[in-house]
């Protein structure tokens, strides 16, 4: 046997033995407990504050509609792995569901036209109603927010609302539709006619169960200057921008460091910025169950109240 071959084998054996050595925790983590260790201690039989696994929480064969996760993107937690915690996410979801039981938060998407009523101390009627197109929707859990845009007196106005703010009195969807892009901030650099909506607009009714209509309108942008370099954003809902940009800008746009063609193949990036499908299913099943339960309770309450009212009316008649 040749000597170099033996050397390679020795190295291989050494490396494979390394995984059996006791793990050395680096100093940087010495004051921190790993996520799986915390979970172990929460369920450990030695623990005095043992958390029992609730059978109701475990996923069962409840069929959750496929659209449910796209209707409720706010229930997805923050995806950065070292900032996640199961109990915190659970408590957060509980708060969200409590709030959703009180106020009706309808289904809406970026591109839908909405009206929001907000309690305001300084407004004349102590409340303020704003109508506009939803240009963005982001944030995880209780941090979830959406942005409405409208042109009022020839001036573009944008308002950012926290979805779980208790000052929100009513959320209405006047026209339920989707657009081609996930964010519509480019309306800032488009003519105001694209973001002008009447404040007394009447709601457009949509058939229940029908697919959400897609508004494939292509916006004609204003000439530069713009608030962002829109030519680099690969916008779908915009007419071609070639007339507005210079040759140099076109060249720059195709530069690999700006175009970043590898990003769509980057699995690690995807793992870092999104949540695993199986986990999403688990969360959505839990939320779906809870929502159904809340709705049932609501119907029962309404039924009881209705019965009481009928009884009262009968007594009055007598």
């Amino acid at each position: 046997m040749a000597a170099p071959c033996r050397k390679i084998i020795n190295q291989f054996v050494k490396r494979s033995l390394k995984c059996f050595e006791p793990r050395v925790i680096p100093c940087r983590w010495s004051n921190t407990v790993r996520n799986h260790t915390v979970e172990k201690h929460r369920h450990s039989p030695l623990s005095s504050t043992r958390e029992l696994v609730n059978q109701q929480d475990s996923p069962s064969d409840v069929m959750v509609p496929r659209e449910f996760r796209f209707v409720h993107p706010d229930f997805l937690p923050y995806p950065v792995w070292n900032r996640r915690d199961r109990v915190r996410e659970k408590l957060e979801r509980e708060d969200m569901l409590k709030r959703r039981a009180v106020i009706d938060i309808p289904e809406f998407y970026v591109g839908s036209i909405m009206a929001v009523t907000l309690a305001d101390k300084n407004a004349p009627g102590k409340q303020n109603r704003f109508v506009g197109i939803c240009i963005d929707r982001a944030g995880h859990g209780l941090y979830h927010y959406f942005v409405l845009r409208n042109a009022i007196d020839g001036q573009g106005v944008e308002i950012k609302y926290d979805m779980y703010n208790p000052l929100l009195l009513k959320i209405e969807v006047l026209k339920l539709e989707k657009r081609l892009d996930p964010q519509l901030y480019y309306l800032r650099d488009a003519p105001l006619e694209y973001s002008t909506f009447r404040l007394d607009m009447e709601p457009v009714s949509v058939l229940k169960g029908a697919q959400v209509p897609l508004n494939a309108i292509k916006v004609k942008m204003n000439p530069r200057p713009w608030c962002r370099r829109w030519e680099r954003h690969n916008l779908k809902g915009v007419l071609p921008l070639d007339d507005y940009i210079t040759e140099k800008m076109k060249k720059q746009k195709q530069h690999p460091q700006i175009e970043k063609p590898w990003e769509k193949h980057d699995l690690m990036l995807k793992a870092r910025t999104s949540i695993d499908d199986r986990e999403v299913d688990q969360i959505m099943t839990e939320v779906y169950k809870r929502k159904e339960k809340i709705q049932k309770e609501k119907f029962q309450k309404r039924g009881q109240e209705g019965k009481r009212e009928v009884k009262k009316a009968q007594e009055v008649k007598k």
Binding site: V33, V38, H41, R42, S47, S48, T49, R83, R84, D85, V87, R88, L91, E92, D95, A119, G141, L142, Y143, D162, Y164, N165, P166, L167
Partner: peptide, 28 residues
């Protein structure tokens, strides 16, 4: 305790503020 992370909460005036969650796990 063990630090679990942050969550927003609101006061009765509608003011938003951030709170930190601390879990007291199995202390003796």
């Amino acid at each position: 305790a063990i630090k679990l992370g942050m969550l927003p909460q609101w006061t009765k005036d509608g003011k938003k503020f951030i709170t930190t969650l601390l879990q007291v796990l199995d202390n003796h």
